[in-house]
Simulated assay, not measured.
Amino acid sequence: MFEGFDFTDFWEDCEYAREKYVSDPPSDELIASVEQELGYKLPASYIWLMKRHNGGIPVNTCFPTDVPTSWAEDHVAITGIFGIGREKLYSLCGGLGSRFMIDEWEYPDIGVAVCNCPSAGHDMIFLDYRECGPQGEPKVVHIDQEYDYEITPLADSFEDFIRGLVNEEVYEPDPDEEKAENLDLVRTAPFSSLLAELCRKSGAPEAAERWIRDIAEQIVEDKGFFALHGDKESWLLYDIQFWLYTNAFPGVTEQQYLEIYPQMMVAADGFSTGGYAPGFVEDWLKSRKKTGEIQKKNGGLFLSESAKAELEGQLHQVCRKG
């Protein structure tokens, strides 16, 4: 088995791996009882490997794919490999093992779940016995709960799967390339429907769009990517979004605004932060209310006149820099 394959430094024997995955080498009796419980004969290459290291977390945790999955466009990732046994949480017959994923998470009963993934159960690696039968040599597939349990073939055998694992560093984006892509995004990508509507109702649509894109571009220049946090430029973008929204829809309450906020950028198909951390927006709003820059009248929020004047000055300064 695994002729010519170097298992030196294959396993990452951290404390978590030893606690959750790694068991003593399985006896022939244990292997037979696990196979009987699962209803499938385990591959010889898998048994060979488990007798030398029974479960664990490999150093290389990614496997290339030709099609996108919920994890990535060109690969899947695993968290660990289940060992043969029952005692460890992540073992074939453990608490979160193969039968649990089939019975409780409703994965298709096509074989044996052999690896879990970083999605905490929302995708899994299975030994697939559909073609070979319960006593044959299974293929290895990825099953994606997020895509209605879509099955993606990975390898013709468990040995091929192990040989094909690569390090996650292979898929780490180039910082300069990522920055260039994000700059192009904030310069040209279409706004969400809500953000576009707010710009149209501002009275100066082109200026409003230019302000947003210029601020976003400055954020990308500083961070290398577009994301809103608690920094000065992020707060400036929070300010202009609030200004535009209350101009278009006066009388919005705090709760209403926080509920509608994600639709401005996060829900966009193009120009988008790609995620949403409500704590940053809530902190910004709390601070602006405390300083009186955002005030309340008849239950609705609005930007004070002095805050409007200061914001316009900041925006013109940003555009001059751009």
Rank of each mutant, 00 (worst) to 15 (best):
S193F: 05
R210G: 02
A180R: 09
V186I: 14
R187F: 10
E206C: 05
E172G: 05
L185C: 05
F126C: 05
P138H: 01
A207I: 14
N182C: 05
E206T: 12
P138K: 02
K139H: 01
E168I: 10
N182V: 04
E159H: 12
L183S: 09
P138D: 00
V170P: 02
P175E: 12
P134T: 07
F191E: 15
L198N: 06
R163A: 00
E197G: 09
E150D: 12
L165I: 08
R210D: 04
D156H: 12
I212D: 11
R210P: 06
I162Y: 07
P134I: 12
E206R: 14
D156V: 04
K179V: 12
D174W: 00
E168N: 06
P175D: 13
E177K: 09
V170E: 14
V141Y: 00
E150A: 11
A204W: 04
I143P: 06
P153L: 01
P173S: 07
A204D: 15
E177W: 02
E169R: 07
D214S: 15
R200A: 02
G136M: 01
D156Q: 13
D184N: 12
N182P: 01
R130F: 03
C199E: 06
E169D: 12
L195M: 14
Y149R: 03
P134D: 08
Y147R: 01
D174L: 02
D184Y: 11
N167Q: 13
D160C: 06
I162T: 10
S202N: 02
L154F: 11
D128Q: 02
Q135V: 11
A180Q: 07
Y171G: 11
D184T: 15
I212P: 06
A207R: 12
S192N: 14
L198M: 10
V170Y: 13
L185E: 09
I212Q: 12
A204E: 13
P175R: 07
E137L: 02
L183C: 07
W211F: 05
D160Q: 10
G133C: 00
P175M: 04
Y149I: 04
E168Y: 08
A155P: 06
A204I: 09
L183V: 11
L198H: 04
A155Q: 03
A196T: 03
V140I: 01
R213P: 04
E172T: 14
A208N: 07
E169Y: 15
D144M: 06
A180N: 05
E146H: 09
E177T: 08
G136P: 08
S202R: 04
K179I: 04
F161L: 08
E169W: 11
D156R: 15
S193H: 09
V141P: 04
P138A: 00
H142P: 01
S157A: 05
S192F: 11
L165Q: 10
R187W: 13
V140A: 10
I215K: 00
E181S: 08
A208F: 03
N182S: 14
D156C: 08
R200S: 01
